[in-house]
Simulated assay, not measured.
Amino acid sequence: MVVLNKIYTRTGDTGETALGDGSRVAKYAPRVEAYGTVDELNSTVGLARLTAETNMNEALARIQNDLFDLGADLCRPHMEKDDDAEYPPLRMISSQVDRLETEIDIMNANLSALRSFILPGGTPLAAHLHLCRTVARRAERLTVDLNTAENINPSAIKYLNRLSDWFFVAARVANNNGQNDVLWVPGANR
């Protein structure tokens, strides 16, 4: 249970922050960059929800909750010590990745094949979803980079990879099932 009754603690005034296991690191540490970018992604999803209708809004709400799970996973180092933890650490699981894949397949079934790359834009929702996609890719890059130095839950990396694909397909859905996609015209302004 989380209890937040005092918002400022002054414990970060020296440029450090606490990880999920209580250890302290610099606020610019790669792990903090990774889960901080996941938090940024969650905020961009919140913006997208402002223009999303029922089914899309519900899917985005599930993703926002997953992103908090992902942040909890990434802020807890030393997966190999999970069994010794005072309480079980929250980790991403394969069923969260599977759900994204199922939703991608359902959305993609109604879309025509692409014959060009897409420029971010179209409807306001599609533009927001493209922003979500690019922030998800950055979060993925940072997490993969972190994985070169520390063991990261493979499901966390897979989730971020599928999530950016989910946002891409969802943006096409938001563009009238791809009919309002803004197509790239190579060399159009030469």
Rank of each mutant, 00 (worst) to 15 (best):
A85T: 02
I157N: 03
A72G: 06
N108I: 13
I152C: 09
P120K: 01
I118E: 05
R62N: 15
S155A: 08
N153E: 08
A156D: 04
L67K: 02
M107A: 00
M107G: 03
M92P: 02
A109H: 11
E150G: 12
S95F: 07
K158P: 04
T51E: 13
D66T: 03
Y87H: 14
V135D: 01
R133C: 00
A109I: 10
H130E: 05
L125D: 08
R137S: 09
T51A: 13
P120I: 15
T51R: 02
G71E: 04
D73L: 02
L129V: 11
A126S: 15
R62I: 12
R91H: 09
R62V: 12
N42I: 08
A126V: 08
N65G: 06
V97Y: 03
A126E: 01
A126H: 03
E58M: 10
L146C: 10
R76Q: 08
I157P: 06
D98G: 13
L90C: 08
V144I: 14
S43R: 04
T102Y: 04
I152M: 13
R99K: 03
A126L: 05
V144K: 01
R138M: 13
L100W: 07
N151R: 14
R91N: 13
R49S: 11
T54F: 04
D66L: 05
C132H: 02
L60W: 12
D69E: 07
S95L: 05
R138Q: 07
H78F: 12
N147M: 06
V45C: 00
N153V: 01
M92V: 06
L67A: 13
R91Y: 03
A126K: 00
N153P: 00
R62M: 14
I63V: 15
P120W: 06
I93G: 00
N42H: 07
L119M: 10
L119Q: 01
A85S: 10
Q96A: 03
R76D: 08
N147A: 14
N151V: 14
G122Q: 02
A48E: 08
T102V: 06
L129A: 01
A52P: 06
I63M: 04
E101A: 14
K158I: 01
P89D: 07
T148K: 11
E140H: 11
D73C: 01
I93T: 15
V135W: 05
E101P: 08
G122R: 02
A136Y: 02
L119W: 02
N55P: 14
D98V: 11
N147G: 11
N110A: 13
K81E: 12
Q96G: 15
L50I: 08
E80F: 07
F117A: 00
L119P: 05
A156M: 05
L90I: 12
I93L: 15
R49M: 15
V135S: 05
P77L: 03
D83Y: 11
E53T: 13
C132L: 07
E86S: 09
G71A: 11
G71P: 00
N65S: 15
D83G: 12
N153T: 05
K158A: 12
M107Y: 11
I157Y: 04
R137Q: 07
A127M: 05
N151D: 13
L100Y: 06
R137I: 11
I104F: 01
L70V: 04
T123N: 00
N153D: 07
D145L: 13
Q96V: 14
S94K: 15
G46K: 10
I104D: 08
I106Q: 10
D66S: 04
Q96K: 12
L142N: 01
